[in-house]
Amino acid sequence: MINMAVHQNLLRLKGFCMTPTERLLVYPFMANGSVASWLRDTHVITAVRGTIGHIAPEYLSTGKCTEKIDVFGYGVMLLELITGQRAFDLVRLANDEDVMLLDWVKGLLREKKLETLVNVDLKGSYLDVEVEQLIQVALLCTQSMPLERPKMSEVVRMLEGNGLAERWEECLKKDLFMQELNIAYNPNSDSIIADSTYNLCPDELSGPR
């Protein structure tokens, strides 16, 4: 039965050998080894791998890979496309700015400097509403809680203009709740300290400028 299996991607059985102690199947010599040998003898890398600035916070802490880690990285990539900035850039540190692109973007949003976010090389050849929508999608993808990030199928629909407004509004409500909660537990705090590990959805993007 095995000998009858003929396919261009399969090695064809040459024969077999039977002894009182062994049962052997004879195949052509595999210079690179078999799939089974690679699965059994190749080692598993458990250390964190990724590009600085694109790595989701939960991956750094747990080392576990999930699809939501890829969603986070996609959100950072969107911000790179919008801003023309690197996800991690020490040049910003020299300018007394955040080295992490996500933190830098959130800082500008808190200061209501949306125009500063857009890549200067675009020279104004873009629609403000489209840029705002892209930023919204990017921030939804880079929320600190993995379960709150959309699936990539949802990201595609939002980029096509379906469901973004509702998802963004929901994010704003959660953010407002978190701010109120922070003030309740920290009554002497005048502001919220936000970085790439905090779920920030700035309401500056929720309406027209």
Score class of each variant (00 low, 15 high):
D98K: 12
P146V: 10
K173I: 14
M4N: 15
G63D: 07
P57A: 06
M77Y: 03
D121A: 11
D128C: 10
M178V: 00
K174F: 12
E132R: 13
L10C: 12
A138V: 04
L81Q: 07
R23V: 08
V44L: 10
E115F: 02
Y27T: 13
K113T: 08
P146D: 12
L60K: 03
V129M: 06
M145E: 15
K123Y: 04
M30C: 08
G124H: 02
L81W: 04
Y27W: 05
Y126K: 07
L10E: 03
F177P: 00
Y27F: 14
K68G: 10
G163F: 04
L127F: 06
L176D: 12
L24R: 00
R167A: 15
R209E: 15
S34H: 01
C141R: 04
L200Y: 14
G50Q: 08
N199M: 08
E67C: 08
L11D: 15
L117C: 10
P187Q: 05
W38A: 15
P28T: 10
V156P: 00
M77I: 14
E170T: 08
E97N: 03
N9H: 11
L10P: 04
E204H: 00
M100K: 12
N119F: 07
R149C: 09
D128N: 13
M100Y: 12
H43G: 05
E204V: 06
M4I: 10
E132N: 03
N3H: 11
S196K: 10
F88L: 08
R209C: 14
W168H: 08
A56V: 12
V44S: 13
A94F: 03
Y59I: 04
R40W: 00
P187A: 08
D103F: 00
L122C: 14
L164P: 05
G75N: 09
M18A: 14
N188E: 07
R167M: 10
T116W: 00
H7Q: 06
N32R: 11
V118M: 02
D190F: 03
Y74Q: 11
L181D: 15
V120E: 13
L114Q: 05
L147R: 11
N162I: 11
V48L: 13
E22W: 01
E154M: 07
H54E: 02
F72E: 08
L176Q: 13
K112E: 15
E169Y: 06
V156M: 06
D121T: 07
H7M: 02
Q179I: 10
V155K: 06
L108I: 04
V91H: 12
E130Q: 11
I55G: 03
C65H: 03
S125H: 07
R110N: 07
L127W: 01
L127K: 14
T83K: 01
K14P: 00
K64E: 11
R157I: 00
A87G: 08
A138N: 09
L147N: 10
C201P: 02
N3Q: 14
